[in-house]
Design a protein around this nucleic acid. Sequence first.
DNA 1: CGGAGCATTGAGGCCACTCAATCCAGGTGG
DNA 2: CCACCTGGATTGAGTGGCCTCAATGCTCCG
Lengths: 248, 248
Amino acid sequence: MPVSTLDRSVTEPIIRRLNALRTLSAQASASLEHAVLEGMQRAGSGEDLISEGDPVDSVRIVLSGWLCRYKTLEDGRRQIVNFIFPGETCDAHAFLLAVMDHSIATLTPVVYSEIKRARFETLVASDRSLAEAFWCETLVNSAIQREWAINLGRRVALERVAHLFCEIFERLRPVGMIDGNSCIMPVTQMDLADATGLSVVHLNRTVQELRAAGLIVLRERTLTINDLDALKDAALFSPSYLQLYRRK
Amino acid sequence: MPVSTLDRSVTEPIIRRLNALRTLSAQASASLEHAVLEGMQRAGSGEDLISEGDPVDSVRIVLSGWLCRYKTLEDGRRQIVNFIFPGETCDAHAFLLAVMDHSIATLTPVVYSEIKRARFETLVASDRSLAEAFWCETLVNSAIQREWAINLGRRVALERVAHLFCEIFERLRPVGMIDGNSCIMPVTQMDLADATGLSVVHLNRTVQELRAAGLIVLRERTLTINDLDALKDAALFSPSYLQLYRRK
DNA sequence: CGGAGCATTGAGGCCACTCAATCCAGGTGG
DNA sequence: CCACCTGGATTGAGTGGCCTCAATGCTCCG
């Protein structure tokens, strides 16, 4: 079955994302696209794709929509520990460990592809750059985790929210999901609060502070950054941890 | 050159640590030990082994001593994002990315082994379980990072400090570095504050609260946990993220 | 028209912060 | 041996950032 032009546009974020990490051969791209198109799935908003404690036996790659990784405490406190954007992989290597240590939920309706472990392992065994690209993605995720630790531990509310907005913007850029100085922001303030470790009330007030400072506009699920450099300064944001530029 | 019995005891934490993740063949253990013994190094306390922004071209495995991964903000605020204990690897796969996104510093005098990238890659290419063990270590580190995110974002000071003590204790156990209900705690309260995102003053008061509750004794660089279950309850600690038990 | 979900605002309280002083142990030089 | 210094632990006082509780507004939708 040939991969049509239409299909190509569907898998584009994935190919762009991985190519940002390692140059993929046409052959590797094609076999990946083929595998992706075989396992297409949809999920509504607010669904758990995987829950903490589940064993994992497949890899999920996001084609469209936003997801989050989160953990909860017994009493219900929730912390979003990372977002997952189109082109990114949910758990490329999670099957090496016994069970999931966290949950993954959709924040919007999502289209993704589910690839069984054996299929995935065959795929990456066939091409070294493909294997390395997936590993790099895992490593970049680790780096993002570390940045979130300093964000939660050492930045004050205003810096923290500003930093999150900067990160979202810079992560959406390489997959072509920003439009000028705007991007969609399809999540609730509750989600943003859980990502920044703040209460909803205080998150709301912090967003208003950013608005009052003229740094951002946030309405109708769209974030507009008036002055990206100024926002980055306010956030103490330095993008190197995202590894947007390659070594070689 | 044969590996002597004395040498064996030096590399023991490494072998124990990796075996907890994947069963290593005698052959794999031996060639790893050999490589480790070739690259032995020492460092004093308070030294940076690698700094943010550095390119990486070797792997460091810790034989004894404590280290930490940390990030800083321009104005000096510091967040320790993880500890590194004997038997653990500093950056098994960091060379796949361009540069370090964080720094690694010693918290005590340290003995470690530095293995050049090419040597390391040859080593892991020779044995699948060895390669998987190192990858698992990287993945467990990611899981720890995520737990730290909820620790910093959603636990209050008392829970946070209690959680850190539980984690340290449970991570030292598999490498044989606990003694009954005690372990060494060779770091300053400043370090503990930077790991928990608290000020030194408040960390000190929180430790005293744990002491007053009869949960711990902390003096002369030794931590004694009077009632581990009670401490875990106070911390909302659940060890599954440490992957102490294997799938297979 | 009523309800649900989300954003916003007000009021009051506490947790963790900063600044600053004190204590203590270990190391060093006179 | 002691005075001194330094790094770390501890304590006190006062403040403010972020919290909780609770009410209100708004929009969408059945």
